[in-house]
Structure formats: structure tokens, C-alpha cells
């Protein structure tokens, strides 16, 4: 089911046979890569392994098998060099609540050779972050903006974001997506963007990694999904075996059926006059995969 992206020169991250075991949950073996110049959306239900994967990339958890190469280097052996080139934004702020925004930046700055205080202040201004405010006085959304400012101020080549849009209002989310689009413009950087709000990825992601129960179910470009995948709907009597074999997560009701196909062309060639093919959203793709696995 996994469509792997070939490891190539432009890969900024290459994960091979990555494994991590907890009591009652096993992640992997995972194989995927992230390419320079692209935003990869990392989707999956809660507990699927998104945060665990991100923590393994950041060496916050110890992997039990496999390899992680970031910028062509092992993420543990070359940890410092690798981390100097990574910006991170997590789902919580993990900052000192009693410190001001300015002092928080002074904790981050000295560890990054490319830290740009002017850039940090410029992002803070753009996000209406007062430098003298304490972190505890910021809303969840503003904390995320502070984390984003800290992540971007050292001009990272790779931005790793774990659920950055959760708790953000629509305007802030759009603002974040605009920044990501700008960030990726020079085609030398990459973004890994974990989220359960897949509508954000519909707008900005180039690639999609879908993880469930510690396994990657889908690893492909968003364009490929939108070109080849289709939402198929029709009356029950049109659900012939040729069609059924092409569908994922078929749901039946008194009014008809619906399901997802990975092969829009093949389904279209079946010439079933009463079925309708629609372009799916990423959320629908995720839901039908979920339905299939139930």
C-alpha cells in the first residue's frame, strides 16, 4: 500500500527501517524521505505515531532500529550540526512561562550560529508579539507564533512542526500557511508539518505521509492523490464486483454507496452511468483508509 519516494540527492531527511517500541504500541519499521523544496504533510489519527516519529527525528526518543539521516548525516552522531539547521515547533510551547518573550529568545539565540535577532524581532512584530510580555500571558495561538518566530529566526533548512495549527483561529492558521509558502520558496528548504487539520494541507502540502498504528499507509505527492484518487458515489446496484475491487472503505446505506478509489481512470473506464467521481479532500482520503481498516 506504501508508495515510497526514492531516496535522492534532494532528500533532506531519509528514514530507513525506523523502529520504536512502547508497551502496547510499535512504531515502524518506517521508511520515508523528505525532499528539499517541498512541504510534507504528516497526517494520521491521534496515537498513530506522528509525535513519536518527530521525537525520533529530534533525538528526544531513542530509536530501537533503523537509521535517520538528516542533511546526509546521522541525526545522533551529528546531532549538534543537524539541530543547528532545524527549526522546531511543537504542539505545546515547552518554554519558561515566567520569562518574557525577549529573554526566551536570548536562551535560544546563542545556540544557533545563524541566529538573526533582527529577524526574530521582525517576526515578533509581524505576529504582534510584545517582547516584554511573559510567556504565560500569551494565548495558545500567540505561544505558537512565538515558537514559530524562534524557529525561523535562525534561518533553518528544515522546519519540523508538530500540530502547530491546533488551537489557532482561522486567520492565524492562514498566516502560518502563508509563512510556510514563503519559507519554501527558495527550494532549498523543507517542512514536515504534522496535523490533524488536513484542510491546511490541502492548501500547502506537496507530499503527504499518512501514518496509522505506527505504519505508513500512504506516502505520495498531493498531486498524485488529487489526480488518481477519487471519491466514488452511486446507487447500490451499480456496486458491481469490478468496481468494488477498486474501492477502499466502502460505506453502504439505503441511499447508495460511497468509497475511495486509488485508480480514477480505471473506475471511469467501467462505464457505469450512474456513479459519480469526485475529487477527494485529504481528510476524506484519511477517513476512507480508516474505514477500510476498521
Amino acid at each position: 500500500m506504501t508508495t515510497s519516494i526514492n531516496v535522492a540527492d534532494e532528500d533532506i531527511v531519509a528514514v530507513t527501517d525506523l523502529e520504536k517500541k512502547f508497551q502496547g504500541f510499535t512504531l515502524g519499521p518506517l521508511n520515508f524521505s523528505l525532499r528539499r523544496g517541498y512541504i510534507t504533510g504528516f497526517i494520521g489519527p491521534n496515537g498513530a505515531g506522528k509525535t513519536t516519529t518527530i521525537k525520533l527525528l529530534m533525538n528526544l526518543l531513542h530509536r530501537e532500529g533503523g537509521a535517520i539521516r538528516i542533511f546526509g548525516q546521522d541525526n545522533i552522531e551529528s546531532e549538534l550540526d543537524v539541530k543547528r539547521r532545524i527549526g522546531f515547533v511543537y504542539d505545546e510551547s515547552f518554554l519558561y512561562e515566567d520569562l518574557t518573550v525577549s529573554r526566551t529568545a536570548r536562551i535560544f539565540g546563542p545556540h544557533y550560529p545563524k541566529w538573526n535577532q533582527t529577524a526574530f524581532e521582525s517576526y515578533a512584530k509581524r505576529f504582534d508579539l510584545s517582547l516584554n510580555k511573559r510567556v504565560k500571558e500569551l494565548s495558545r495561538g500567540m505561544k505558537m507564533k512565538l515558537n514559530l518566530s524562534l524557529a525561523l529566526a535562525h534561518d533553518p533548512e528544515l522546519l519540523i512542526m508538530d500540530e502547530p495549527t491546533s488551537g489557532l483561529d482561522v486567520v492565524s492558521r492562514q498566516e502560518l500557511l502563508d509563512i510556510l509558502s514563503d519559507f519554501i520558496q527558495d527550494e532549498n528548504r523543507a517542512v514536515l508539518f504534522s496535523t490533524h487539520i488536513t484542510s491546511d494541507l490541502d492548501k500547502v502540502a506537496d507530499y503527504v505521509l499518512f501514518i496509522r498504528d505506527g505504519q505508513i499507509l500512504l506516502n505520495t505527492s498531493k498531486d498524485e492523490i488529487f489526480e488518481n484518487y477519487a471519491l466514488v458515489k452511486g446507487p447500490i446496484d451499480e456496486l458491481v464486483s469490478d468496481l468494488n475491487s477498486q474501492l477502499i472503505g466502502v460505506r453502504k446505506s439505503a441511499y447508495g454507496f460511497d468509497g475511495l478509489t486509488k485508480n480514477r481512470t480505471k473506475v471511469a473506464r467501467l462505464n457505469l452511468p450512474r456513479i459519480v467521481l469526485e475529487r477527494p479532500t485529504l481528510e476524506q482520503v484519511m477517513l476512507y483508509f480508516e474505514e477500510e481498516l476498521k
Binding site: N59, L80, F88, Y90, F94, E97, F108, H111
Partner: peptide, 18 residues
């Protein structure tokens, strides 16, 4: 206590720090 309360180890271990 403050470090634990703010789960600051996550940030410190994510920074390029030994």
C-alpha cells in the same frame, strides 16, 4: 521544579546542545 513544570527538557534537548 520549574524545569519539570514547564517540561523544559523537550526544548533543551531539541536545541543544538550537548
Amino acid at each position: 521544579l520549574i524545569d519539570d513544570k514547564n517540561k523544559i527538557a523537550v526544548t533543551l534537548n531539541s536545541l543544538p546542545l550537548r
